[in-house]
């Protein structure tokens, strides 16, 4: 469904963020992208929806080559890729409802969006999503009045109302406390399951990745160095990804957590 071939990004400064990345994500498949800071995780997902233009290589979504699209066609394809951000990236001074509806901008014309006259079906869907994430009563609050977890839920609604085929998720839990982090990860993975969405989730927390995701891809220095199931993340593998460290504790906690959940 999503296919990356020899995707390479060299920044103007000469930093090579990605080199020849090949990756295939099937329909409805959720993968966690792990790796140390600066490994190129953010660049990778931004190269897919072209917030960053890749230097070479291709990204193909359902047969459409994203890397060669003109601006109009790119906007139409971006509608099919919902993005969720680390710092939520809500428009702080707009209401929750406006933030959710901004996910429909790719579908409505300029004047309708300027006057906030979104089609009734969009408004219905926005209410449905807000209800689903438990924020219906917050619809008219301004986004900056919400807590971190609530903001991220709004961010998820904004991505889902696009009716995407693919979610690009950039460190969704990095600014959240451990409990909220799990709730958000659970929500994202549940939503993917319900709607059959594929997702690439950048994540720092190896535990969380193991807990919620069936496939883990590791990136280091712009190259994929691991691709496998969550149980294959042995201390040896983690050392290859992150460097020398005592990994036993990390992996053990995972087992504890899973027992706790069950």
């Amino acid at each position: 469904m999503l296919k990356l071939e020899k995707l390479t990004k060299v920044y103007k400064t000469g930093d090579k963020a990605l080199s020849d990345v090949d990756l295939e994500v099937g329909k409805g498949q959720v993968i966690a992208l792990i790796g140390p800071s600066g490994a190129g995780k953010s660049t990778l997902i931004r190269c897919i929806n072209r917030l960053v233009d890749p230097s070479s290589g291709t990204a193909t979504l359902d047969g459409v080559n994203l890397t060669s699209l003109g601006s109009g066609a790119l906007r139409r394809e971006r509608r099919r890729m919902g993005m969720i951000f680390q710092e939520y990236a809500l428009v702080e001074r707009l209401t929750v409802m406006e933030n959710v509806l901004s996910g429909r901008l790719g579908y409505v014309g300029f004047w309708r969006s300027f006057l906030r006259k979104f089609p009734q079906s969009d408004v219905d869907e926005a209410y449905r999503l807000l209800d689903r994430v438990g924020l219906l009563h917050m619809a008219d609050k301004r986004a900056d009045e919400l807590s971190g977890g609530q903001r991220q839920r709004v961010g998820i609604c904004r991505a889902l109302i696009q009716d995407p085929a693919l979610l690009l998720v950039d460190e969704p839990t990095a600014s959240l406390d451990p409990k909220t982090s799990r709730e958000i990860m659970r929500l994202i993975t549940e939503m993917c399951k319900e709607r059959g969405l594929a997702a690439i989730i950048n994540i720092h927390d190896v535990n969380l990745a193991q807990m919620f995701v069936q496939r883990v891809v590791a990136l280091n220095l712009g190259e994929i160095i691991f691709d496998g199931g969550p149980t294959e993340l042995t201390p040896d593998v983690l050392t290859r990804i992150y460097g020398e460290e005592d990994w036993e504790a990390t992996i053990e906690t995972v087992d504890d957590d899973e027992e706790g959940e069950a």
Partner: peptide, 24 residues
């Protein structure tokens, strides 16, 4: 970041301005 998020939804330049920049 807020501008980037609006761009990522598939909004046009003008929509990005109205939703991402003007409120700020």
């Amino acid at each position: 970041n807020q501008v980037e998020a609006i761009t990522a939804t598939g909004a046009t330049r003008w929509q990005t301005m109205v939703f991402g920049i003007v409120p700020q």
